[in-house]
Design a protein around this nucleic acid. Structure first.
Length: 940
RNA sequence: GGGCUCUUAGCUCAGUUGGUUAGAGCAUCGUGUUGAUAACGCGGGGGUCGGUGGUUCGAGUCCACUAGGGCCCA
């Protein structure tokens, strides 16, 4: 019979599954979205809306996606889904970046491993393109699996001919402005391979070098300045690369380190960093050492020393990178042979001097001693010093400037191909001058127009813009956009804006491979050459490619400015904080130089994924597993919800524990939706809805709470603070407002009342509104689940007629606001939790009651008491609101404070509603039930 | 070494212009329910706010120093 009675209840009915089973279900929804052309439908719906352009920073296509990609793309997708629902015309063109060393390196390795050594640049490029394409497809599939909705058919790609052409046009613009110049800069150079190497192509191995202490005689003026009477006064340097001595142009000292002038028996007076005195004395076996003076490094600035064997000055300069870890604290500086040296040289106007040819042999430039000309710096192996090293040693030993020498074993860079030690060697490079036309000042100025989220992003990019030297844009690489420069037999370079534009037109149809397929004459065929150029048949194509930051940094010109449905500048760029120095900056420069303004109005940055303990993720960490494994474990919605529950402005910690935590919140969320859908199964708005002003107080309260939620959540979305939207607002709303309060109270009403009972319909009206609004509020965060719930609410099956992404963002209906009722209900519920629940819990522990309906409350109070008055006002609703069987209020002038008593309810328990009532009434079919149930049963 | 930045319960986050016993969700422990049931309710325990020192009648909330993370440079 009990079973029969249960059948008379209006229990929730829905097919919406309690368990998400996202891993299986989500891919079906993706297919559904594709089938209905969701992205296109969204664009069509909003075509007249206000424009909002989020410009996608292109990921590099060289591997599977990881959580970092998911963080970035989820934030973008969440923003766009919100904007789309809010009616913005916001096309989303995803991008891909593919030129560059990581791919070229991997592909070259593969070619070598297959035993090939004779491959041509063109072959490498084709293999790179194939490799890049493979991962472009893999990545786009993985992004789609994450739920990223975009115009995949019209993606942009840095290796597309039209993109390359636009990039070359941008470069032509630079050239036209006269800011592209040629200058030397040191690069790693492999002598056997006759090629420049990138950091990634270098292997550090132990190597035995000859370390030498060499003295550089001070000029007379310097001695006078330092008050050193000894004519044989020198500054002492230490180096492990004797062969770089011919290129020595300076000695660097640290401005804040103390230096000592020491008198020695055999080598005159020497200047050495004071902290290194002991070790130098020891290493050089100096005798009779006596300190005659001390100076601060800064006092030595600009004083002149003389090169040990070439007749020229070697001034003493200041450099912050000088340390006292080894050597003498006085650093041999050859701007053509080291990056630090180079910077010191540039800062002090020194030449970037490098008297080595491509084969690593000294050239005859009138400065290199005749004995050295032609000697090679390459070491032939077996630990034998190079000819150049021996030659230099011979000279300095001969003229007395060599104080000591010793073999040392240390880690030294080697070529990954030839396995020989590499040399650092200055080569001609192309640069873009950043100050010549005032572009740096303009860039800094343009940042004033940009809104930074978070605000400190501005300081970061500003510092980067202020401090970066002129932009070296040439790379000695194959897999990139070629620098359209030509060279004559003597190495003279020719570059011209109009020529580049003409080449760009050819590139637009055939891609930059033409640079590697054709001769200069063929490329220049049909192009008008400037008057001062040699004829095309006398020219050769350069082999340098453009820095890949020019590639992605040109995207605003190649994409935003070229596509009719986009606009420049973008409303938003959104990338990781490393891009302050990367894409944000390269884009800023190209934009400021070519278009005189920043390419973005808003700049949003997020942090990096780290381990739960806050330290960086390494490849071997489980949390570093590929994105598709995470999704296979949890489903995209959980991963997305996890991302959106994090404050992305700082580091974003991840672990299975953290994601599981979110999965728990998700479960609560999902079941709440299920409860609502299930309780609306017999509700037809047109037929059953109750006018809002006639809603029951509790329902009014619920709508009032909803109104506040919509306002706050919308604010949070507008500020891109999704973690607030979720954790501060949505999650507590689900757990507290709905699950623990509203839904819990409503069960009795919804289940036991007659289906058409006005109170039941009142609540269904409210639930209907709440569901409709709430599901839309979470749609950008959990697009799969929201769409699924939306479908089940429509037709109780997986796919409904309308995708939730095509609905409008909810706005507050002012009739939901009812502050007074809401504040009453809130106070009453608070009374329950602070005054009654612990008492009820005590009864439960004593086994006096089980569920709260087994209990009653008796509250005695003074009618002057505000709280008691409020209870009195809602007397008829209290039992329901507290989920008790009975609440009696007793007025008494005797009491000053409320007196509260809870006890087991009186009477008999209604087998249908489980409420305790004074007596049951007999029904024909269902036996004895409470009077209210008997009434409800009449309509069953 | 430099620039920017982060540090509140086991986890993720809130904490307005400095002001009563520092909040939430999840987790945990106990418990009720078996009509949201691999679901839901109720109750309990758990932080003194990275550390130190200041300013103040009073600081998680302002200042200085310091420790430990992160990104980017060197």
């Amino acid at each position: 019979m009990a079973q029969d009675l249960k059948d008379t209840l209006n229990l929730p009915q829905t097919n919406f599954p309690m368990r998400g089973n996202l891993v299986e279900r989500e891919p079906k929804r993706i297919n559904h979205w594709k089938k209905i052309g969701l992205y296109d439908q969204i664009q069509a719906k909003n075509s007249e809306g206000e424009s909002f352009i989020l410009h996608d920073g292109p990921p590099f296509t060289n591997g599977d996606l990881h959580l970092g990609h998911a963080l970035n793309k989820t934030l973008k997708d969440t923003i766009l889904r919100y904007k789309w629902m809010a009616g913005y015309n916001a096309p989303y063109i995803p991008g891909w970046d593919s030129h560059g060393l990581p791919i070229e390196h991997k592909v070259s390795r593969e070619l070598q491993d297959s035993g090939r050594t004779d491959y041509t640049p063109l072959e490498v490029r084709k293999a790179c393109a194939k490799f890049a394409d493979k991962y472009r497809l893999i990545q786009s599939e993985q992004f789609e699996r994450l739920g990223v909705t975009a115009d995949w058919a019209n993606e942009y790609w840095t290796i597309h001919p039209e993109y390359e052409a636009a990039e070359l046009e941008t470069f032509a613009n630079f050239v036209e402005q006269g800011i592209v110049y040629r200058s030397k800069k040191p690069v790693y150079w492999s002598i056997p391979c006759a090629t420049a190497l990138a950091e990634a192509e270098i292997e550090y191995k132990d190597h035995t070098s000859i370390s030498i202490f060499v003295k550089l005689r001070l000029s007379e003026a310097a001695r006078t300045q330092l008050d050193l009477p000894d004519e044989d006064s020198s500054i002492l340097i230490w180096t492990t690369t004797p062969w770089t001595l011919p290129a020595n142009l300076a000695v660097s000292v640290h401005p804040n380190i103390e230096y000592s002038a020491i008198k020695t028996q055999a080598h005159g007076t020497l200047i050495v960093a004071t902290p290194l005195l002991d070790s130098v004395t020891n290493e050089c076996k100096l005798e009779g050492v006596e300190t005659v003076a001390t100076y601060l490094g800064s006092q030595l600035e600009k004083l002149e020393a003389r090169h040990p064997f070439i007749d020229r000055a070697s001034p003493i300069l200041l450099a912050e990178y000088v340390t006292t870890e080894s050597g003498t604290g006085c650093v041999h500086t050859a701007p053509g042979h080291g990056l630090d040296d180079y910077i010191t040289g540039i800062n002090n106007g020194l030449e970037v001097y490098c008297p080595l040819d491509d084969k690593g042999c000294y050239v005859d430039d009138g400065q290199v001693p005749a004995d050295l000309v032609g000697l090679s710096v390459l070491e032939t192996g077996n630990g034998k010093p190079s000819d150049a090293n021996l030659g230099v040693l011979k000279i300095i030993a001969g003229n007395g400037s060599l104080i000591a020498k010793k073999k040392i074993k240390h880690s030294y860079p080697h070529c990954w191909r030839s396995k020989t030690p590499v040399v650092f060697r200055a080569m001609d490079q192309w640069f873009v001058a950043l100050d010549k036309n005032g572009d740096r000042a303009r860039a800094l100025e343009s940042l004033n127009q940009v809104n930074f989220i978070p605000s400190w992003g501005e300081n970061r990019i500003r510092a980067a813009v202020e401090n970066r030297p002129d932009w070296c844009i040439s790379r000695q690489r194959t897999w990139g956009v070629p620098i359209p420069a030509f060279y004559d037999e003597d190495g003279g370079a020719y570059i011209d804006a109009d020529v580049i534009r003409a080449i760009s037109k050819k590139v637009a149809s055939s891609g930059t491979n033409l640079w590697f397929e054709q001769t200069a004459a063929e490329i220049l065929d049909g192009i008008q050459l400037p008057a001062d150029w040699p004829s095309a048949d006398k020219l050769k194509c350069g082999t340098d490619t453009l820095d890949v930051w020019i590639d992605s940094g040109s995207s605003h010109r190649a994409v935003l400015q070229k596509r009719p449905n986009l606009k420049w500048p973008a409303d938003l760029y959104l990338e990781g904080s490393d891009q302050h120095r990367g894409w944000f900056q390269s884009s800023l420069w190209t934009s400021v130089i070519a278009d005189k303004a920043a390419p973005y109005k808003n700049l949003l940055t997020h942090g990096f994924i780290v381990k739960e303990d806050g330290t960086k993720l390494s490849k071997s960490d489980g949390a570093a597993r590929p994105l598709n494994e995470w999704i296979a474990g949890y489903g995209a919605d959980i991963i997305r919800l996890w991302i959106c529950s994090q404050d992305y402005r700082g580091d974003v910690p991840v672990s299975d524990k953290i994601v599981k935590n979110v999965a728990n919140n998700y479960r609560n969320l999902r079941n709440t939706l299920r409860f609502q859908i299930g309780n609306l199964h017999d509700f037809d708005v047109a037929r059953d809805a109750v006018p809002l002003d006639q809603l029951n107080a509790l329902d009014k309260w619920a709508l009032n709470e909803l109104a506040q939620l919509v306002r706050k959540v919308t604010e949070a979305y507008d500020a891109y603070e999704f973690h607030r939207a979720f954790k501060d607002l949505i999650d507590p709303f689900v757990a507290n407002t709905l699950s623990a309060t509203y839904h819990d109270v409503l069960k009795d009403r919804l289940y036991t009342r007659s289906p058409n009972d006005p109170l039941r319909r009142s609540s269904q009206t409210a639930i209907h509104i709440i569901f409709s609004v709430f599901t839309r509020l979470i749609a950008p965060l959990v697009p799969f689940t929201a769409d699924e719930a939306w479908s089940y609410a429509q037709n109780d099956s997986d796919f409904g007629d309308q995708a939730i992404a095509l609905t409008d963002w909810p706005v507050v209906d002012s009739t939901w606001d009812d502050a007074e009722t809401a504040s009453d209900i809130r106070a009453l519920r608070s009374f329950l939790s602070t005054q009654l629940n612990d008492r009820l819990e005590a009864l439960r522990q004593q086994k006096t009651i089980g569920q709260s309906l087994d209990a009653k409350a008796i509250i005695t109070g003074n009618s002057n008491d505000a709280e008691f008055a409020r209870l009195k006002k809602y007397e008829a609703d209290l039992a329901e609101l507290f989920i008790l069987s009975e609440v009696s209020l007793i007025e008494s002038q005797e009491v000053s404070e409320l007196e509260i008593e809870v006890a087991h309810a009186d009477g008999v328990r209604c087998p249908r509603s489980w409420r305790w009532v004074p007596e049951l009434v007999e029904t024909e079919r269902w036996g004895a039930v409470s009077a209210r149930c008997a009434e409800a049963l009449k309509s069953i």
